[in-house]
């Protein structure tokens, strides 16, 4: 049986990992890979050139007292857990005594590769940019089709303030203002388009309000906002209540009129 196999068997670790760990350890200690493997296979230990105090893994007798200050152990080297190599030339910040650490026979478990974190950072930034462009910027680009129907509603100034109240109270947490071309939304009204200036929302724990003004009067909406029909009562100021109701009343599909004809109730 080779030293590699023996070490792997002794440590209960796959051979490729033992090989890689031994190579890393050899690079740090100046020993050969074979010497490392032989030591591991035989259960021996390897001295690491580490000017450090005893490892924190070493147990020390400590009294069990809740009130006592935690026992501060003598400083270890840069922690490369379980015997990983530490850098020489360390500053013994808390202990002036440099002690050679004797590591156990196990290979370091946190063996990595000498890679460049800046390359990882560049990849991370590039990936985010790609996802951002496709997932957020792409869908936001306007699609202008001359003569296409629009979902943008001409809200009055009061209603615009009501829109802010609608958002501030958190109405969109329960109500959508978004009608989709799916079976579930049949009968709710005209499908919402990308230029909508309503608060779309993402959850529908209460009815969709895209077209609330077509179904309910201002009086009815005011009653509901005040707690009628099982709706939670919103304690709003008179001004905010008026604005919110105005926003909901004006939330209705625009009446399409033949070209040249005056809209109903208009001046002409």
């Amino acid at each position: 049986m080779s030293d590699l196999s023996a070490a792997a068997a002794a440590l209960g670790v796959p051979e490729p990992i033992v090989q890689r760990s031994a190579a890393a350890r050899a690079a740090e200690t100046g020993m050969t890979v074979d010497e490392i493997l032989a030591a591991w296979a035989g259960g021996g230990s390897i001295e690491a050139p580490v000017p450090a105090a005893p490892s924190a893994d070493v147990e020390a007798p400590v009294e069990e007292a809740a009130e006592e200050e935690p026992v501060t152990f003598a400083p270890s080297a840069v922690e490369t857990p379980t015997g990983g190599p530490a850098k020489p030339g360390g500053l013994p910040a808390a202990s002036p005594t440099a002690v050679t650490t004797t590591v156990s026979g196990k290979p370091p478990v946190l063996v990595g590769k000498a890679d460049n974190p800046i390359a990882v950072l560049a990849g991370v930034l590039g990936l985010f940019l790609a996802v951002f462009l496709v997932g957020l910027v792409g869908p936001a680009l306007p699609v202008d089709e001359p003569g296409a129907r629009s979902s943008e509603l001409p809200y009055t100034e009061t209603a615009e303030h009501g829109r802010q109240v609608y958002q501030s109270v958190g109405c969109a947490a329960c109500h959508t203002q978004m009608i989709r071309p799916v079976v579930a939304d049949v009968g709710l009204g005209a499908v919402t388009l990308s230029d909508s200036n309503q608060v779309l929302g993402t959850r529908r724990f209460g009815p969709d309000l895209s077209d609330a003004g077509s179904r309910l009067s201002g009086t009815q909406l005011e009653a509901i906002v005040g707690g009628a029909g099982g709706h939670p009562a919103l304690n709003l100021s008179a001004d905010d209540l008026e604005s919110l109701v105005a926003y909901l009343v004006e939330s209705k599909a625009p009446v399409e009129t033949p070209a040249g004809a005056a809209p109903e109730g208009g001046d002409g």
Partner: peptide, 14 residues
């Protein structure tokens, strides 16, 4: 109020 144990303290290379 945890039980006091030897604490891991780090000394750094640089």
């Amino acid at each position: 109020s945890g039980r006091a144990v030897p604490q891991e303290v780090l000394v750094y290379g640089t």
